[in-house]
Amino acid sequence: MSPAALVLDCRGRRCPLPIIELARRIDQVPVGAVIRVEADDPAAGPDVRAWSRLREHEFIGASPAADGTPGYEVRRLR
């Protein structure tokens, strides 16, 4: 797992709220750093991936949090 500069807790938040949070907060990490979204909505995985593509950031991958909640990591590219 890449060390994330910022972890967003989006448990219990329905899509598209996790990617709205991601869009709002990505500027808080430096370019090249990793931001991690932890979200249990089943649409969060495909949506974080698609958001990264549309916003030209790098989707790194998925790995669960300690409590089993799915987590998604994105590298800020611009």
Binding site: C15, I19, P46, R49, W51, R53
Partner: peptide, 13 residues
């Protein structure tokens, strides 16, 4: 989410 949108890598929301 729709399995079609997921399979094509599209935004589902």
């Amino acid at each position: 989410p729709s399995h079609v949108l997921v399979a094509m890598g599209a935004l589902t929301s």
